[in-house]
Computed example of a mutant assay.
Amino acid sequence: MTKFFGNLHAVLLVGVVLTIAVIYGVGPNADSTQAALRWLHLFFGITWIGLLYYLNFVQVPTMPKVPAELKPGVTKYIAPSVLFFFRWGAAFTVLTGLLIAWHAGYIVQALSLDPHFRLIGIGMWLALIMAFNVWFVIWPNQKKVLGIVPAEDAVKAKAATTAMIFSRTNTLLSLAMLYCMVNFNGG
């Protein structure tokens, strides 16, 4: 048992197989594809927003308290891993969300903020803005901060501030985005 649970990839693989069995074996939905997409969207969304909140509620506020000799443990090992799952969680959350709307036939109405789909449309636009921030502002600046891309100290400091502002912007936007997502009743 210890060997199995000590292997995250094995645990995830068995979890995925179990979930597929539930979706296609006993799931209440007549449309198993839509159910699978919703499950993936939820999984990736929890990963993305969970890491967003971890970064903003735990890592960033705690870093000033970490002794200088211990900071490389975070910046060289923890932060790059967190940011990998953070940015790919964002990408796959948006992709599966768009696939759900397309598969259900309301993607155009949602993105054009048609009155019957306005709530989910606002949520989708907020998520798109947030994902853009992740890939085109936060990640490029974090690469400088973490030393993945060479940068002088002044550039690193400015990059850290920019990444923090956009990360906090995403935290702000996530609250309304989550409201829109959980309160959409399917049109």
Rank of each mutant, 00 (worst) to 15 (best):
L128A: 08
G186T: 08
V16H: 02
A160S: 14
V137A: 03
F84Y: 11
V17A: 15
V60E: 00
W135E: 09
V145Y: 04
F4W: 06
T47C: 12
I138Y: 02
M130P: 10
I129T: 13
V182R: 06
G186S: 09
K158G: 03
L98R: 02
M181Y: 01
P150R: 01
V26Y: 11
K76L: 11
N141Y: 03
G50I: 07
N170K: 05
V14C: 06
G6Q: 09
V145E: 02
N183V: 03
A157M: 10
M130Q: 10
A30P: 08
V74N: 08
C180F: 02
L99G: 02
A35R: 04
F184Q: 08
V74C: 06
L12T: 14
H41E: 07
A101P: 06
F136M: 13
L95C: 05
A157R: 03
D114E: 14
G45V: 08
N56T: 15
T162C: 04
L18P: 06
A127V: 14
A91L: 14
V14I: 12
F84T: 15
F43A: 15
I78G: 02
V22G: 12
G6R: 04
M177T: 01
L52K: 00
F86I: 06
A159R: 01
R168A: 09
V14A: 11
F4Y: 13
I46Q: 05
A151D: 05
A91N: 08
P64G: 08
A10G: 04
I138K: 04
F85C: 09
G25E: 05
I122C: 07
T96V: 04
A30K: 12
A176W: 04
G97A: 10
T62P: 00
A21R: 00
V155N: 00
L175Y: 10
T162M: 03
H41K: 05
F57K: 01
G187Q: 07
Q34F: 15
D153H: 10
A159N: 01
P150E: 12
Q59I: 15
L55W: 05
V66G: 03
Q59D: 04
L175A: 13
T93P: 09
